[in-house]
């Protein structure tokens, strides 16, 4: 009787151990299937404006392919070109088109997203169309009154974002409010008599309620409380940004210099897939 009990216990233990071992094996096989044997490291370096988006995409990618490590580094668009020249990164990230003199070191370029900034005015404002030069002059304080732009005789209330904001970076760069001195240091010439608001929502609220005010918000946040002006005659929308006719927009580009690894190819395919582009659409304008 006692012996029978002992055998039973040992049998049970053996069975349990086997089950655990088998389950363990099973798990291994499944995860190997998931990865398709893909592993390695993908390095992306370059524009700090693309960096947050690349990080989002990299996180989603690494969830899908746990054995691939995607490293995202900053440094600026120029650094993006340099790192593919020196082959220290798989992708260079740029937040501007590739320049003529850089074309030699770039083998492929993939536009992964577009970033657009809408210039908005108070709904009562009669000026509905501005040129890039006029916008630059408003923000550097050269034009101070709406009548110089064919509007009412009223002082322009300039609203801007805080220093370091990505939207401010894109806006000042494209409108050339941000220039470089002879040493290559960036100089932001936004007038100090500008109201600074810390978020897109606060800028919208300010422009919506303050007469004669002008501000800018990222295209995704545009709504009917404010009036978006046409820039160089083109109204801002996803379509005009994607086809390039709306000027205050910039492409986010991945460039490569040499043949890329399989992991890097799968990564860029992921970025351009529906799943990747839906991550882009959370904050920027998808290209597909």
């Amino acid at each position: 009787m006692l012996k029978a009990k002992k055998t039973l216990v040992i049998g049970l233990i053996a069975a349990m151990t086997m089950t655990v071992a088998l389950t363990g094996c099973g798990n291994d096989t499944v995860s190997e299937n998931n990865e398709n044997g893909l592993s390695g490291t993908v390095v992306i370096a370059g524009s700090t404006s693309v960096q947050p988006l690349s990080e989002e995409l990299a996180d989603a990618f690494m969830d899908k392919y746990p054995d691939v490590t995607v490293e995202v580094q900053g440094g600026g668009s120029g650094q993006g070109i340099k790192s593919i020249e020196q082959a220290i990164a798989d992708f260079g990230a740029l937040s501007r088109p590739v320049k003529e003199e850089e074309k030699a070191s770039v083998r492929t370029e993939t536009i992964i997203a577009k970033d657009g900034v809408a210039v908005v005015v108070n709904p009562d404002c009669s000026v509905k169309d501005l040129t890039l030069e006029q916008i630059q002059k408003i923000y550097t304080g050269e034009i101070k009154n709406w009548k110089e732009l064919g509007g009412d005789d009223a002082e322009i209330v300039v609203v801007t974002r805080e220093e370091g904001s990505g939207t401010r970076g894109a806006f000042t760069e494209i409108t050339k409010v941000l220039t470089k001195d002879e040493n290559g240091n960036e100089i932001d010439q936004t007038i100090s008599q500008a109201i600074v608001q810390p978020s897109t929502g606060a800028v919208k609220q300010t422009v919506a309620t303050t007469p004669n005010s002008i501000g800018y918000v990222s295209l995704g946040a545009l709504d009917e409380t404010v009036t978006a002006v046409a820039v160089e005659g083109v109204a801002p929308s996803s379509e005009t940004v994607v086809d390039g006719t709306y000027k205050i927009s910039r492409p986010f580009i991945y460039v490569t210099g040499t043949d890329i690894s399989k992991a890097a190819q799968v990564y860029v395919d992921f970025v351009m897939s529906e799943e990747g582009q839906s991550i882009v659409a959370e904050e920027f304008i998808p290209v597909k």
Partner: peptide, 10 residues
């Protein structure tokens, strides 16, 4: 204060 003083460093 952040939302209502205009944040103009002047």
């Amino acid at each position: 204060v952040l939302l209502i003083t205009g944040n103009m460093p002047v």
